[in-house]
Design a protein around this nucleic acid. Sequence first.
DNA 1: AGACCCCTGGAC
DNA 2: GTCCAGGGGTCT
Length: 266
Amino acid sequence: MRTLRPRIVGARVLSLNIHSSHLLRSRSEPLISIKGAVVTKVRRRGKLLLLDFDNGKSLIFHLKMTGQIFLPDGNTAPDKHVHLSFLLSSVGMVCFRDQRKFGYCVCRTTSSLSDDPALSSLGPEPLDLTKGAFYELLKGRRGRIKNLLLNQSFLAGIGNIYADEILFRSKIHPQFPVERLSRIKVFSLFNAIEDILTAAISQGGSTIRDFRDSDGHPGRFQNSHKVYGNEGRLCKCGRAAVRRIVLGGRSTYFCPRCQRPLNKSA
DNA sequence: AGACCCCTGGAC
DNA sequence: GTCCAGGGGTCT
């Protein structure tokens, strides 16, 4: 978003080309309604990318696992995975590419954006929360802490990599019951969320295989991962190897020494 | 909580 | 061939 915004704000949509209808959703207003309109805002809400136009329309993108938006050049020419492309004035082509086709794009009227279930179901932005608000948000919640962090209606925008890195930083076992977290641990978790997300954003995100920003550059935060993808490697504590388990169908990495489970006999 | 689904491709 | 992948929905 940070590389895309300065490139396309102010540009006019001269034409658009839908190469595949796979990523379009039912009940979308026709994408053609943004033709001739000027991009006024590039925003993010949770994992959604929002483009606002000067004719009162907006586009909602979800990139899911392999989605990317890029401005093609010699290195990143459009290919069979480009499902949608726009021609923008004084910018050129902008492409939405998604190898696995899990992503989507819908058009909405800007003034009713917040009614869209994709947006209305989202919890608060973690970086907008105060420590006290986070504590209140956790009250009454139950279940395993990692599942809660991945729940977008609890907090918007935390994915599998960052959930693991946040829990490692706060020294909480991914299966620790939310309702048993001490006040100290809740604050530690809050600080870890701020720290990990801020660092990840400043380092351009994490590239495991596909992720690129709109300039085609990979992220750098993967170089700072302490547990994610490190199964079998010695934790930085030097006392245990990072373990991988599966929770809710997602790979989960943690250090069994730094992140202790709740002692069930206690 | 878990299984299985959407889909493609890389690693082994 | 099998297993795996930054997400997330549905069904039991």
